[in-house]
Computed example of a mutant assay.
Amino acid sequence: MALSRRDALRIAGTTALASVAGCSSPGLFEADQATREYSLSVDRMSGTPVDRALYEPGDDQLFGEPAREAIAAVVPDGRHTTYGYESVRADAYVEHDERYYQTKHVVTGRKKIERTLVRVDPVPEDAVSDDAPLIESFERPTARVLKILHSDTQSGGEGSSAELLRGDAYVLRRPAERSSALAAGDLDGRIATMTESGTWAYRIEVATEEIVETAHTALAVEVADSRAQFREVVFGSRVDAEIDPDELAPDAREILQQAVRRESYRETAPVSDAFEALLDALGLEDVETGVNGKWLWYDGEFHRYALYVTDA
């Protein structure tokens, strides 16, 4: 746990008293003791928090198209249900006819659906032919599925990809997946490899099964009827710190301005009073290991900031 300056001074004071009493323990922050470095990163961002908060789906077939379809269906007061997956990012802000909405998801039931499931079995290198296709060569809806299954296989089912699977199988749910080469059965029984050398090769197995899928219904909640009102919504929900230069003591303000100019600022524990005051203003006083992606509005400009705590 990172020590506050107050705790550090208290401990150092206790150590000093012990030395006076005849103890030989070294000071807590002497050169041969482990110390911590606090690195504040501040990047100036283009645009405003309002611009950045608005969600614009990409134009890709796999994720972007379903999201755009869902938004068109739910704004201003519709519903859009998908089975087994959420079609649009939850809690995203979108605009329609100069009014602003936030997307939400609710579970509205379950349904038995016939789905295509994909599994892979590792095969030895000597079973891989020279013309075995590279997984990377497939279109994204197919390649992504096989890469997820590869990652799960290599991690023994303990990796982050496990949450994307149903047991050892990937279920083709999204429209782009259901129209892919995997769904068509073109790759069933074929061997594909992650590398040109034939290592990490897999036999692809495709099966059709009836499974129970959860119904995810997307809807939109109006949060503002003007851009000015939406600004207050964004600053209340997404901006982590809003600081006027006059609110900071001169030495703390200089540290922040230096961090903005150089994109970073570092101190080793025990940190200065000015740096501690700045961290408190940024809401970082209780960070123990690190945090990033924070939003700052300072002196009329938009910034993103982070704090990293490491052993120096």
Rank of each mutant, 00 (worst) to 15 (best):
S272P: 04
I255Q: 01
V223Q: 07
D280S: 14
Y305M: 09
T116D: 02
S129V: 04
R79H: 12
D251H: 11
E136R: 14
L9S: 07
G236L: 07
L165P: 08
E98K: 13
D188P: 09
G198Q: 04
I211R: 10
K294N: 15
V260W: 06
R119Q: 13
W200Y: 09
H105G: 03
S46C: 01
L307H: 06
D91F: 14
A259P: 11
G109A: 08
S39P: 00
D244K: 12
K104F: 11
A169R: 11
A53S: 15
G290S: 08
P245N: 05
R36Y: 01
V212D: 15
L172Q: 02
P26T: 04
Q229F: 05
R174W: 01
A72T: 11
D240P: 07
A72Y: 06
G236I: 05
T214G: 03
D280N: 11
A70S: 13
L28I: 14
R99W: 05
C23Y: 08
A73V: 09
L278R: 07
E232R: 15
D225N: 13
A127Q: 15
G300W: 00
S46W: 00
V271Q: 08
S226I: 11
E263F: 10
L279H: 06
T81L: 04
E276A: 15
H303W: 06
Q33S: 13
D152R: 05
L279D: 02
A306G: 15
Y170G: 03
G64E: 02
T214Q: 13
P122A: 10
S180C: 06
A183W: 02
M1Q: 02
D131P: 07
S41W: 07
A220P: 04
R110T: 15
R68H: 14
A127L: 12
T15V: 15
N292K: 12
E37Y: 01
Y55M: 03
V118E: 04
T289H: 12
D51I: 03
A228I: 10
L62G: 06
S46I: 01
V128D: 06
A31E: 11
E209W: 10
D77M: 02
M1L: 08
V42K: 05
F230C: 06
G159E: 00
D299Y: 08
V107M: 12
E56R: 12
A127H: 12
P133V: 08
L117M: 11
E163M: 10
D51V: 04
S19W: 08
Q258K: 12
D246P: 02
K104H: 12
D60Y: 02
